[in-house]
Design a protein around this nucleic acid. Structure first.
Lengths: 219, 219, 219, 219
DNA sequence: AATGAATGAGGATTCATTCAT
DNA sequence: CATGAATGAATCCTCATTCAT
């Protein structure tokens, strides 16, 4: 309904196919090259759009980038909300969270690479602009899940819940990075052995178990 | 002693002050702008060196960058090795690890921003070149600490030690990023509240406690 | 019609005036400075074109240069083909060849200087790229003229025709260089006396006579 | 005795081996890269001399280059003077000239590539400086040989002797270029067939025969 | 609305030459 | 006299953005 601050109205009017083509192409290129090295003219060409049009859709390179990230964050958020945070034990919820995170990462690896990019401090200005918009309700979900688990007596009462929520987010984020960034992949393999990135069961299990113990869950 | 593959012999010959000036300036600029946006000519000017000299010290912008990171990683490694991994309980060792990490981060915030940069996938090629060189013996330390704690009966025997070591590294890395990157700082404040980044005691405590519980340590 | 491999489609689209301005300017500058010392930005400025445009017309400095030479060679070839190689005695044909060569040299002296440039071995790579394209059908013409002259009984049968054709080409090439390159001009004046370069009649006459005798022609 | 205007006295004082090393290296590099692209610092390094010394021997890059050419021209001149222009028939003298030229070309191919370079008009300034110095007494020799042949009745009296001398020089020059420059080599092979550059007998024969007929020599 | 040609500031890198040691 | 570190102007090329059609 309310259009994004990162693209102009004209973008709303073009066909979803073209929108998708632009987004997909741009994500790939930005993920491949990084923000600075990415070339808008190339993106336009690859997406089958004139740069003229590109600039009628997006105010600037930065806006295109942010529109991408916003869209990806929305998708991630939607995916994470399918974790049914209210069903089952905390251990089961956590398991679902990690599975969803992995599935999303597999489906949108380039998008995940973009998250790494915005993390970088030379994107400070852009990041600032984004933080108002970015739907990241899953962060609230983490907290809610923990609160409920405490109420249900699954989790120890004396635990710093906010810190624990951050811990869970950390684990999710690092897992995603380990599955998408070459650098973190190498690092994971250093700890877990070669091809460890393919053993999803172990990844899910070790994360869930570690966090559950960290939360004082009996399981 | 053994010279780095990232700088030329000439760099060894100049005064430590000048070396330092170049490194400090370059770290600041790269941290500020990112690899692509950083301007070598500016770095040279700021460091009080002619670009001609700059290129007589470093083969390329990339090499300068990698020399920086290599140096920083060496420093980090040396710092982490001062954690006395053999003294005291696992809880005490972990506490020391986090305190050292925080101190390093405070002392070299720009360096930490550079770590974020190399994580990015458009730095893949550079990262690859680095991985052979990068001293990261603290990674082995994490594993050793855990093994010894198991032997001493501090840590449960049924735990996936490799995964646990990765977990510790994750926590350290995310803590460092939270203290240096604007993006992660905002994120931490979302979870822990404003100014939470200044409350080192809480950060250390929550990390150590969570990990210790995750390891099944009685404390 | 068929576009050259040395310039892009965009170059085809601009006005012939602008094309000509670019070519003329570039030829002058390259002839003046040589390939390496020539400055593309200067050429662009002199031609009244932005460098951005320049690079949208030509992939590189090298391509600009080769486009020039290709064009010049085409022109030379077309000019040489107007020698009516089938009309008159071999002596008359040769005379026409030299006159045409001189006229072309007078009209495109800078172009001739470029031929000298590509001759140079540090242009090896470029020359190689050119040789597939370069129209030099006049070389076949020389051979054809000689064959016909033999058939007509004008030229001795026992002569090495291929070597003779090369001889004619040598004479043409050296004449052109003597009229365009300061170095060869000085050399010619050493042999023929000052201002000899202006005495076209003598040049044509001595060349034709010498070659005809060399071919065993009665005249 | 009188030192060259192209190098300083200091150059005279160093060992002939070092002199030779510098000359040989420089010739190779200039022949390979051309004047502009050649790098004096590289030449110095390759020759085992510091650039500091290089500049104490030669005023500038240009002077180094000219000193090279001057030396080469001297050598060529000396070689050509071994043709015994007074012995035997004109045909025999010519044959000796071509053989000497070929031998010189084989021995100093890089030097011959340098001749091509100075021919180029962007070397105008340098060439001018050279022409005063360059020993090219073989040019006088050509004229003398012809005069004597006329006197001996070998050559027709009605021939333009100066033009004929130029013709001979042209043939020698083009032969040398055909044996050293990739461009002219290809051109020769177009006329004479592949590997024709190796058939020295044919080259000598066709040149001598053609010129002799051109001179009206009975043979 | 769409196009894509045009712009030109910007930036990594090279290299002839100087000069302090 | 020899050295080689230092200099910085110069150059090729890129690309975000504009705007006439």
């Amino acid at each position: 309904m309310s259009s994004s601050p990162f693209y102009k109205e004209t973008f709303d009017k073009i066909s979803p196919e073209k929108q998708d083509s632009i987004f997909t192409t741009a994500i790939t290129v930005f993920a491949e090259c990084g923000f600075d090295a990415a070339n808008i003219n190339d993106i336009a060409k690859l997406a089958g759009v004139s740069i003229g049009s590109m600039y009628s859709y997006f105010e600037s390179k930065e806006d295109l980038f942010l529109a991408l990230v916003e869209k990806g964050l929305e998708l991630l958020d939607r995916a994470m909300n399918e974790c049914c945070p209210d069903e089952g034990t905390i251990s089961e919820v956590l398991e679902r969270i990690f599975r969803v995170a992995i599935r999303y990462t597999e489906k949108h690896p380039d998008m995940c690479r973009l998250y790494l990019l915005i993390t970088t401090d030379n994107m400070k200005a852009q990041t600032e602009r984004l933080s108002d918009r970015a739907e990241m309700s899953f962060r609230e979900m983490y907290k809610a899940v923990l609160r409920r688990a405490v109420e249900k007596g699954e989790v120890r009462r004396d635990i710093d819940l906010d810190a624990a929520a951050l811990f869970i987010d950390n684990a999710v984020v690092m897992l995603q990075f380990s599955l998408t960034s070459r650098y973190y992949q190498l690092r994971m393999e250093h700890y877990l052995g070669a091809k460890s990135g393919d053993d999803y069961e172990r990844l899910v299990r070790s994360n869930v178990d570690f966090i559950c113990r960290g939360l004082g869950v009996d399981f």
